[in-house]
Simulated assay, not measured.
Amino acid sequence: MAFPNVYTHRKVAETKAKSCDICFKLSSSVLITPDNKDWFYVCPAHLKDSGFCTPKVDTAAIEARKKRKLDEEIERVKKEYEEKQRKKKEKQEKGQSGDNKDEKEEKKDTDDKPGEDGKKTQRKTNQGSKNDADAAARVEEENTEEEPRVFELRSTFYQQRLNKKRQAEIARRNRERLQDPTFFPSVPKNLPS
């Protein structure tokens, strides 16, 4: 009957939003126990209230996440470095195979044509904006992951949840008893003497 005082925060669709058990405002946030025995709607503002619940921090998961992000960042930097080194080698090989005069003339020709330079700078700015969008997406993803997902209710609220579950169980048993035909006494069949 009793369930652990560990609740996981989950979001539901806005169309499935129901009233918060605390303040009765519409909410799409749900606190649910790991074994799905108890769940209730709650406003996200209540999750930040230390009088209602406290977040349970899983330090091992946080460390693993940080390590994974660090590894991904290292891999990304390595790839960028290898790409730069490859381009540098290509330029050196190109410089050794061709005359320096031809390269200088090509450079002057590209400087004289503003349309091509404009395209190059535009490509660079587009790449910069894509990188900015990627960085913004990573920051947003980090912020959503930083919010605690597991909570422990304060003892008074946890007792209220237990009492509510007990009352619901008692009401269910009473309904079943009333539907059972042997619950009520039968009419006496013998005449009284």
Rank of each mutant, 00 (worst) to 15 (best):
P114Q: 03
A135F: 09
E142S: 09
E140A: 09
E141Y: 10
A136I: 04
E90K: 04
E141L: 09
D132F: 07
Q92T: 01
K107D: 12
K101S: 04
K124H: 08
K94L: 15
T125N: 12
A135D: 12
D134K: 02
G115S: 10
S97I: 06
T125M: 13
E116P: 00
N100E: 15
E106P: 01
A137T: 08
G98H: 15
N100K: 08
A137D: 03
E105F: 08
A135P: 00
E142N: 11
G95C: 14
E105C: 01
K113T: 08
K107A: 13
N131E: 13
K113D: 15
T110Q: 05
E105K: 01
G98D: 15
K94I: 05
E106F: 10
D109T: 07
T144S: 03
K107G: 02
D132K: 08
K108Y: 11
K107E: 13
K130D: 07
K113I: 08
D111W: 05
Q96E: 15
V139H: 03
Q96C: 00
Q92F: 07
Q122G: 11
D109Y: 07
K119R: 12
N131H: 09
D112E: 13
N143R: 13
G118E: 09
D111E: 10
K91I: 13
R138N: 04
K130T: 08
K130Q: 05
E105M: 05
D99H: 05
T144E: 01
K130A: 07
D134P: 04
N143K: 14
D111M: 14
D111R: 10
E103Y: 15
E116S: 06
T125L: 13
E140N: 10
E90V: 06
A137C: 02
Q96L: 13
K130M: 05
G98W: 15
E141A: 13
G98C: 12
T144N: 06
G95E: 15
N100C: 09
K124W: 02
D102G: 02
N143G: 02
K104Q: 11
A137G: 01
R138P: 05
K89L: 12
T125E: 09
K89N: 04
N100A: 11
Q122P: 00
T110S: 06
N100G: 00
E116Y: 04
D102I: 04
D112A: 13
T110W: 05
Q122W: 14
K120V: 02
E142I: 14
S129I: 15
K119E: 08
N143V: 11
K91M: 12
G118F: 01
K89F: 11
K113N: 15
R138L: 01
K120A: 01
D109Q: 09
K104G: 01
R138D: 04
A133G: 02
G98T: 14
V139E: 01
E106K: 03
E90W: 09
K91V: 12
K113R: 12
Q127M: 07
D112F: 04
E90C: 02
K107N: 09
R123K: 10
E141R: 15
D111K: 12
K108W: 10
K119G: 03
D111L: 14
K107T: 11
V139W: 01
E93I: 06
E103G: 01
D117P: 00
T110A: 09
G115V: 05
S97Q: 07
